[in-house]
């Protein structure tokens, strides 16, 4: 459902100038928030691995 909604939005973006700004804003927001979450999660995993490795020593 989300994919079809996004696809419809991308198709409309090519027809209307305002949609270009809308899609850019939505993709940018999604990328920033998802990127921050993934980076934080990866750093937590690396840190927890290091902590458990040092506990095992």
């Amino acid at each position: 459902m989300t994919t079809s909604a996004l696809f419809a939005a991308v198709v409309r973006a090519s027809q209307s100038d305002a949609w270009t700004y809308v899609i850019t804003g939505w993709l940018l927001t999604g990328a920033v928030v998802a990127g921050y979450w993934l980076r934080t999660r990866a750093r937590i995993r690396v840190g927890e691995t290091r902590l458990s490795a040092e506990r095992d020593q």
């Binding site: 909604a5 809308v22 804003g25």
Partner: peptide, 30 residues
Amino acid sequence: VALCLFGLWGAPPDDRQGEAMRLLYLHVPS
């Protein structure tokens, strides 16, 4: 997911701002 559905598809465009109104669903909560 609900925001994507409503913000990009469910909500109608604004009378004056048109489709650009959809950016306010991100700008205001941010």
